[in-house]
Amino acid sequence: MIRALVLLLALTCSAEAWTGEIHGRVVCDVCGDSSIGPEDHPLQGAEVAVLCITKSGEVLNYQAFTNSKGVYTVAETMPESDRWDSCLARPISSFHGHCTRRGDAHAGVKFTYTRPSGYSHAVKPFLYKPAYAPAYCM
């Protein structure tokens, strides 16, 4: 009886809530060729900002750092009426010693968040370039 009540409460709460996730990668583009190849590697500790506007018009600002695989994640659970409508993800900085110059032509990626509750939106990788490309890149 208690299990059924707990399950019913969980289902009732989840019907009113919306959960979203945004994730992406930050990579060192070693040769600076704007493509990810075998010579490139993920950047741990890179900072990414994600700015979202909700359907109710509220502006939410998130800050994320990449893990050892170069992946950052932003997630939120909120009422369905306040779910994300559109977002802008942009790289802020890379703390990697030799790969600190932003390599992307655009400062960020703007997108409409249309994923249903519980699903994630993948952002294209952000690239950083080293100050000098190794000789094998030429």
Rank of each mutant, 00 (worst) to 15 (best):
E39D: 15
L9K: 09
G24C: 04
L11W: 02
S68T: 13
T19H: 09
R101D: 02
K110C: 08
A75M: 07
S86V: 09
A107F: 14
G57E: 00
E21V: 15
D82Y: 12
S93K: 13
S93E: 08
L51I: 10
E39P: 03
S34I: 06
V123F: 01
T19N: 06
C99H: 07
C28D: 01
G118M: 03
H106E: 04
P116C: 06
N67G: 14
S86K: 13
W84S: 00
S68P: 01
L7N: 10
I2Y: 07
L60H: 10
T12C: 10
P42H: 04
P91G: 05
K129E: 06
Y119G: 03
E80P: 08
A46L: 00
N61T: 05
G103P: 08
I22L: 03
D40W: 03
Q63R: 11
W18P: 00
D85V: 11
V71F: 04
S93G: 07
K124P: 04
A107P: 14
L127I: 12
P38E: 08
D82H: 15
C87Y: 00
E21N: 14
I36M: 01
L60R: 14
A49D: 11
E76V: 12
T100W: 06
A105L: 10
V50R: 01
L5T: 14
S35Y: 12
V26M: 02
I92M: 06
I36W: 02
H98W: 08
K55Y: 07
I22M: 05
P91W: 14
V71S: 07
N61E: 09
R83F: 03
T100K: 15
P130Q: 13
S35F: 13
V50Q: 00
Y136T: 07
H23T: 14
E76R: 15
N67E: 13
V48S: 03
L88P: 04
N67D: 15
R102H: 08
A122S: 10
V30P: 01
A89W: 04
A64T: 08
G57K: 05
L60E: 09
K55L: 06
G97C: 08
L60M: 10
G57R: 07
R102T: 09
